Computed example of a mutant assay.
Amino acid sequence: MCSGTTPAGISPTAAARVTSAACAPDGGRRVVSVEHTVTVIRAPRGRARIAALGGQIGAFSLVELQKLRRDRSELLTRMIQPALWLLIFGQTFSHLRVIDTGEVSYLAFLTPGILAQSALFIAIFYGIQIVWDRDAGILAKLMVTPAPPAALVTGKSFAAGIRSVAQVVGVLAIAYLMMIPLTVNPLRILAAMAVVVLGTVFFTCLSMTLAGLVRNRDRLMGIGQAITMPLFFASNALYPVDIMPEWLQRLSAVNPLSYQVNALRGLLLGTPANYLVDIGVLVLAALLGIASASALLRRLTR
């Protein structure tokens, strides 16, 4: 009976020659030499790792944005609500003159708040989409890729921010048609878009965090509806902080939406704004949101 030996293992150089004995048809022996080549791929480090993470975030964002190609009417339908706020609510309270906004007209004061509100309404229900992805089995496939959960969360939230830019363009177009005195400086308008994107990232991550906690579409929709209006009314989007009761001023001070509106008013109206504080709060809120949503993302796939 023929016998042979096969060396086990591969050399540290990642290339080894393995020799084994096999029976020949005539009962003799022949030596079969097999050469194995193993390629070792090292994980990227330093700048390469940052570049790889950026590519992963960009890929996830692109996938999300491509969903708009299936239903482009979504952007138009989402313009209805902010248009009604400006055309009905804004015009009515502007004529009533019940809210003192100083030298700025109430319509001009309201417009940055409507920009922040429209982005908030896009972001706060974004967690429902990730629950849909879970139910369709898409999320489980994404979670087994080499990309970390933070890349997936950041990509989706950044895509939501890009969607909100379309809202900014629409609201600004309506405001200019209504002859509301906003800036026409393109750099300030671009900066305002960046502020809206930054705020949208936080509220999208907040929605995905809630999705990781409740893991149910119906409950998530109910919670989203329950917190959207308090977030909006407990900010300075509709009225100055000075006329709020003291307890509401305290809520406004910890509401990221208030800092977003402050930065937008400074950029679009030229009112006094502490950009360092406003942008700093939004960046910190976005980072905390990404961290919390990433930590709870795997809970959705269980």
Rank of each mutant, 00 (worst) to 15 (best):
L264S: 01
V98M: 08
A8E: 14
A24V: 03
R78G: 15
S20M: 11
T204I: 03
S258Y: 09
D26Y: 06
L190I: 05
G212R: 11
A253G: 13
M229A: 14
T19G: 05
V34K: 11
L75G: 09
Y275Q: 05
V283C: 02
Y106C: 07
G222Q: 14
L107C: 06
I99G: 07
T271Y: 07
G289F: 01
G55R: 15
S33K: 09
I227V: 15
V144M: 05
V38Y: 12
T145F: 07
G28C: 08
R45L: 08
Q117A: 12
L269E: 07
S3G: 10
V201L: 00
A192V: 03
F158D: 01
Q260F: 04
P181G: 15
E103S: 10
L75I: 15
S3W: 09
F89E: 03
P240V: 08
L276T: 12
L182C: 09
G113S: 05
I10L: 15
M143T: 04
A160Y: 00
F89L: 14
Y275T: 05
S258H: 07
A159E: 04
G155T: 00
T6I: 11
S235M: 11
T39I: 14
G155H: 00
N262H: 10
L87T: 15
V144Y: 02
V98N: 04
M221F: 10
L257S: 00
D71T: 14
G9L: 12
F109H: 13
P146D: 08
I57K: 06
A119S: 06
G280T: 02
I130K: 09
I180T: 13
L139E: 02
A136D: 11
Q225P: 01
R219W: 13
A150H: 08
D133H: 06
S118C: 04
V32G: 14
A253N: 14
P149D: 12
C23A: 11
R78D: 11
R45S: 10
L177M: 14
V168N: 01
R45T: 14
I290K: 00
G127H: 03
P256S: 02
L139G: 04
A8T: 14
Q56H: 03
M79S: 15
H95I: 05
M79I: 04
Q167W: 01
V281L: 03
G212K: 11
W85I: 09
G170F: 11
G9I: 05
R17A: 12
V144K: 04
S11I: 08
P112S: 07
L182D: 08
A119L: 00
R299F: 03
R97S: 10
V196T: 02
F93W: 12
A173R: 05
R70I: 11
S164D: 06
T271K: 01
L296I: 06
G127D: 03
G155Y: 00
L86D: 07
Y176D: 09
L96F: 15
G224Q: 07
G55P: 02
T209C: 04
G4N: 11
E64N: 09
V168F: 02
L251M: 11
L282K: 00
T301D: 14
A286K: 00
I227F: 08
F203E: 01
F203K: 00
F233S: 07
G224M: 07
P256A: 01
L110M: 07
M143S: 04
F232M: 12
R302T: 09
V261Y: 01
P256M: 00
L76Q: 03
